[in-house]
Structures are given as structure tokens and as C-alpha cells.
Design a protein around this nucleic acid. Structure first.
Length: 564
RNA sequence: UGCCUCGUGGUGUAAUGGUAGCACCGCAGAUUCUGAUUCUGCUUGUUGGGGUUCGAGUCCCUGCGAGGCAACCA
């Protein structure tokens, strides 16, 4: 990927303008700020590509910051797995860092500073403690169409607010008894300006800081502080935060007044927020809550179930980091809410795997073929990847009895069926030309054995008289083949939009055929495969070996054969 | 019926007042020891109505449609 290939989307133009205007002090700094309360999914991958990608493009830094301001839902397990997944995607956080690890930050490491800033706000008469209940607060705030009503505590003198705020911090009050609110504008048409809560009491232990605090800052207060103190220049997030931007700017203004903006290259760094559309994919759900629900109710095997849109699930499914990044590049960045087609993702993974995946023959729905006039066994050698001469070759044996896929045989072939059928010639890949003479069926009419003869002149695969054979089949030698298990995956949901009847109903649209376990036979070379290794099963699809030894189907090969 | 945002082929995205282009999907053909890959070609689009302009997808007005905002979540 070179620079001119990436689209000059609006965020890129925005940053270019700021760089040209000298606003960055010589370095573009972005951040990816996940809350460690779940596993990251393909939607986050898009954001990661944007955040890390823009930093990379402009030669700057992208911080990885755990936005851990709500201890109730967060855990170290999530934080660690988020780091693992981002690394796997191929991104490296950089910058100073707030501890030992460069580029890595925890919002919680700024709690001291945030608390101090909150006290400053109180002293300046820009924040006050409020003891309205949540229900009251809701009523006072009003609705977007009508102005709100001020809290009775709105004009409390700073000294008293300071005393109460400290008592909040010191654990004198229960959760929800008091909170700290910014004093802005109860009549604003923007709800977020109606004296938003910026600190709340939570007697919950923090996964990172333990019981050090019982008051925690709210997102709208914490985020701009985190960005500003880290020297972030460009803070990119999803569309739903657009209405929060004025509040973000309000907080940055206060920091500016307090002289807390960092300086770089003689320039005061004012972080700015911009919003872009999140990624939506048809036939899937992306909400962390709904994914968690599927995990907890065991609709799927876990966060890394290969049907999940999580990064770890896609990894187990066999997707490559490159394919995911290519996909994120190709869907682009805009403010238009849209639903991308998973077909593009599949195209991206085929595109990469076609060039890189080792070829193997595997028969996953086997039926036996007997080559009646064949005696003994012969060895053949096939390239590991015909598209890559450096990939090497592997050997295998062809014998009198082989397996082919049931779908490659028809007793009464339909028009344009180029595969095996009585009287019809096919090529057995790498071996010879074979002519079917008939088949044996059981009482139920199921084909149990196919018979035929080989053309001894065609060893290697080509006829000496130059006649063309339209169909080439993959096969596995019955004597030397090894048993394989595979899981054939399809989309988790059968409905384009599983949420069309609301989030309560989305499970109604689960695809009952989203996974099918099959077993069959494969050429011996596949027995050496290691977990995580990717293969193309010829004429079938791309597969990756899972930790239990089975092969997960990443995606099928494109198939333009249409039964008549 | 408050404020904000967004409407370009089936899908995603370009065109920044000057020939509506690219990719995916789909369809057709060529090549092929993977009905894959590769190659060629094709179908399909600016939300309606006004206005400004020599010229509007782009600027203005006005409809229509979609979404966001009323957690002490992020």
C-alpha cells in the first residue's frame, strides 16, 4: 500500500490542513481509546486503522489508552486481550506512555490530575455539587425541546462545594447521593450543556487502582483531559459523539484557562475531536452488549467463536491481519451511515490467501472410487502453490481406491456438469484421466462406490492425443490418506439486518446452518499442519487449523458453477 | 413538533463550481490440470422542487428520507 492508494478522506484532509497551519507543533498525535469491558471487533478494527493509520501517515504517534473510567464493567483480562488483538492486527502504539510501556496509557493514571482539575473548576465557580436524585435530575434537565430548570444547589458558594466534593472523595456518601456537575447552561438546546455530571460516586474497586477512589470522572469530562494532557492533536471517534463535541471543547477551554495545555514545538496543543461513521456489516451484530449476550447464553462458543465478528474470532476463523486492514482501507471513511457487505471482506481474504496459502487436497464428503484397471500405486508431486514457485512441492500416492467429493459425481449428469458421471471423462488432479463406468448404490439409492478406468497414456494428467478434458477433480488416496475433521462456517445470521425487529429479537434470525462439522480424508502432508496454519483445500475453500486439530473454513472459493 | 448530522449504481466510496470515476457484488466471454486465479466486456447512480451560474453531485432556499442527542455508560 503506498500513500496515493489511500483515499484522501475528510479526516485526512482535516489533519493535513492542521499540519500545514502549524497546529500540531510538528507532530500529529492520535489515540485509540478502548474501554476494557469487552473484546474488540471488526468495527473497532476500522477505528484502529483510522487512528493508527493517520498517525502513521503523518509520521506521528498513536497512543493506546485504556479508557477505564467506569470500574464497574472493566477488567484486566479485557485490557490484555485488546492489546493482543491490536498487535495481531499489526499496529504498534507509540509515544511517551504514562508508565513503563511506550505509547501505552491508562485514563485511570490521570485520576489525580482530573480530581485537581475538578477542584479548580469548583473554585472558579464552574462546577458545583448536586444532590438531586437521578429521577429529579432527569426532570430538572428537561427534554431537548424545552429548557431545563436549574438545580437548587446551582449557586452554592465554591467553599461549600469544595467541602462536599472532598467528602465525596473521602467516602462520606453513598453512590448517587451527590455528584459534581459542570455549571454551563440549563437552557441550551444541546442536552449535554445542561450542567452535565462530571464526577459520580462509585464504591467499586478499580481493576487497575483498587480502592484508591470512590469518585470517578465521567467520559465527557475525562476524555478531553486525557487527550489534552497526552498532547493528542486529533481525536477521532464515532458519529454519536458529535453532540458531545461542544462539551469537549468547553473542557479544553477550561484547561486552556488553567494553563494545562501541553506545548510542543512552541505551540500550545489544543486537541480537537472529529467524528466518522462506524462500520456496520450486514448479517451481523456489532454491539458489545449483544455479543456479550451471545457469549453468556452460549449461542456461540465464546468471544473467539469463529463466527463472531470479534478480532479473536476472525483470527480463529483464519482471517489474516492484512485482509482485515485491506478491508478497512477499501470501505473508506466518511460521515455517511452505511452497511458494508461482508462479500468485500471475503474478497479481501481470498485475495491474500490465493497468493499465500499452501494447497492441499481434502475430501470432506467422501465417496469411494475404484479404478478397476489400476494396479499397485504410483507417486506424484504437486506444487504447494502454483502461483508461487518458491513455495515448493509435496508428494503423494495415487492408488486403485481413492476418495472424491460426493458433489463431484452425478449418476445422471445435468447439462454442463463437467465432473464425474458414467461415460464421462474427468482428470484426477495431478494423476490421470479417468472414465467412469458406473456406480453401486445401497437399498436407499445412495451411491456407495463408483467404478471406472484410467487412461494409462495420460499419467501426469494430459492425454497423449491432446483431447481436452473439461473437469479436474481433487481426490485423496484411500490407502495413504489421513482422516480430517472440518467445520464449515457460514454467516451467523440469516437475516441481512438481525436487529430489524429490535435488539430483543435478534436471536430469532440466527442462521441454523452457521456451522457444520464434517469429516473426511486429506492427503498425508496435511497431517503435519500446525494450529494457525492456513491452507487452500483445492476446489473447496480456505481453511485454518484450529487448536483442537480440526480445520475451520475461513471462506469458500468462489464458485461459478450453477446447477441447471 | 428543540438541536445536530447525513443522502451519489445492489453495496461501499471518489469527484473540493468544469467529461459522474473506482472497487465489491452480479452478468457474459477468453484462458485454465482448482468451474479458482488471470484477462476482456457489460448492466446499474447524483432524494424531489425551485434558485445562483456560461456551467451545479458540489453553492443557496425549500420539501422528503435516514440517523444521532434526553445513563451519575463509553
Amino acid at each position: 500500500m503506498n500513500e496515493s492508494d489511500t483515499s484522501r478522506h475528510f479526516l485526512r484532509q482535516w489533519i493535513e490542513g492542521d499540519v500545514a497551519a502549524g497546529k500540531t507543533g510538528g507532530k500529529v498525535v492520535t489515540r485509540f481509546p478502548p474501554e476494557p469491558n469487552g473484546y474488540i471487533h471488526i468495527g473497532h478494527a476500522k477505528a484502529i486503522c483510522v487512528d493508527f493509520g493517520m498517525a502513521e501517515l503523518f509520521g506521528g504517534d498513536c497512543h493506546l489508552r485504556m479508557d477505564d473510567t467506569n470500574p464497574a464493567k472493566e477488567s484486566d483480562e479485557y485490557a490484555e486481550n485488546i492489546k493482543k488483538d491490536i498487535s495481531w492486527l499489526g499496529f504498534k502504539w507509540s509515544g511517551e506512555g504514562d508508565g513503563k510501556e511506550p505509547g501505552f496509557y491508562n485514563a485511570s493514571n490521570m485520576f489525580d490530575k482530573m480530581y485537581e482539575i475538578a477542584e479548580n473548576l469548583i473554585r472558579a465557580g464552574q462546577a458545583y455539587c448536586c444532590n438531586l436524585t437521578q429521577e429529579e435530575w432527569k426532570a430538572y434537565r428537561g427534554v431537548p425541546e424545552k429548557p431545563g430548570v436549574p438545580s437548587p444547589r446551582r449557586d452554592t458558594p465554591p467553599e461549600e462545594n469544595l467541602r462536599i466534593f472532598r467528602e465525596m472523595r473521602d467516602g462520606k456518601y453513598a453512590d448517587g447521593e451527590w455528584c459534581l456537575r459542570a455549571k454551563i447552561d440549563m437552557a441550551s438546546p444541546n442536552i449535554h450543556f445542561r450542567d452535565p455530571v462530571i464526577y459520580r460516586i462509585r464504591h467499586v474497586s478499580h481493576y487497575h487502582l483498587g480502592d484508591k477512589w470512590c469518585v470517578y470522572p465521567m467520559y465527557d469530562f475525562a476524555h478531553p483531559i486525557e487527550d489534552a494532557l497526552e498532547g493528542v492533536t486529533h481525536s477521532m471517534c464515532t458519529l454519536e459523539f458529535e453532540v458531545h463535541r461542544p462539551l469537549y471543547d468547553w473542557v479544553v477551554d477550561r484547561l486552556d484557562e488553567m494553563g494545562l495545555l501541553v506545548e510542543r514545538g512552541g505551540v500550545k496543543i489544543r486537541p480537537q475531536q472529529r467524528e466518522f461513521a462506524r462500520l456496520n456489516l450486514t448479517h451481523t451484530v456489532m454491539s458489545k452488549r449483544l455479543l456479550l449476550q451471545m457469549v453468556q447464553t452460549k449461542v456461540v462458543d465464546g468471544w473467539d467463536d469463529p463466527r463472531m465478528p470479534t478480532v479473536c474470532g476472525m483470527r480463529r476463523r483464519g482471517f489474516t491481519p492484512g485482509a482485515i486492514r485491506e478491508f478497512c482501507e477499501r470501505i473508506g471513511v466518511s460521515k455517511t451511515e452505511s452497511e458494508s457487505d461482508p462479500a468485500l471482506l471475503e474478497w479481501c481474504v481470498r485475495e491474500e490467501l490465493n497468493k499465500t496459502a499452501t494447497r492441499r487436497m481434502a475430501v470432506l464428503d467422501p465417496v469411494k472410487v475404484v479404478v478397476d484397471n489400476f494396479v499397485g500405486s504410483r507417486e506424484i508431486e504437486l506444487p504447494d502453490n502454483p502461483l508461487d514457485e518458491g513455495a515448493g512441492t509435496r508428494k503423494m500416492v495415487f492408488g486403485r481406491e481413492i476418495w472424491i467429493d460426493r458433489a463431484d459425481f452425478m449418476e445422471i449428469p445435468e447439462k454442463k456438469f463437467f465432473r464425474m458421471a458414467p461415460g464421462q471423462e474427468v482428470r484426477l488432479r495431478g494423476a490421470c484421466i479417468f472414465k467412469c463406468t458406473g456406480c453401486i448404490k445401497d437399498e436407499s439409492g445412495k451411491v456407495v462406490e463408483i467404478h471406472g478406468t484410467w487412461d494409462e497414456q495420460s499419467w501426469g494428467g494430459n492425454a497423449v492425443d491432446g483431447r481436452k478434458v473439461k473437469g479436474t477433480l481433487h481426490w485423496v488416496d484411500a490407502a495413504t490418506g489421513v482422516p480430517v475433521k472440518a467445520r464449515l462456517y457460514e454467516s451467523l445470521f440469516s437475516e441481512k439486518n438481525p436487529l430489524k425487529d429490535g435488539p430483543e429479537k435478534f436471536l430469532d434470525y440466527l442462521n441454523p446452518g452457521s456451522v457444520r462439522e464434517v469429516s473426511g480424508f486429506a492427503e498425508p502432508a496435511l497431517a503435519d499442519a500446525k494450529p494457525g496454519e492456513r491452507f487452500q483445500f483445492e476446489r473447496t475453500g480456505y481453511f485454518v487449523k484450529d487448536r483442537d486439530g480440526a480445520f475451520n473454513r475461513t471462506v469458500t472459493l468462489k464458485d461459478s458453477y450453477k446447477p441447471a
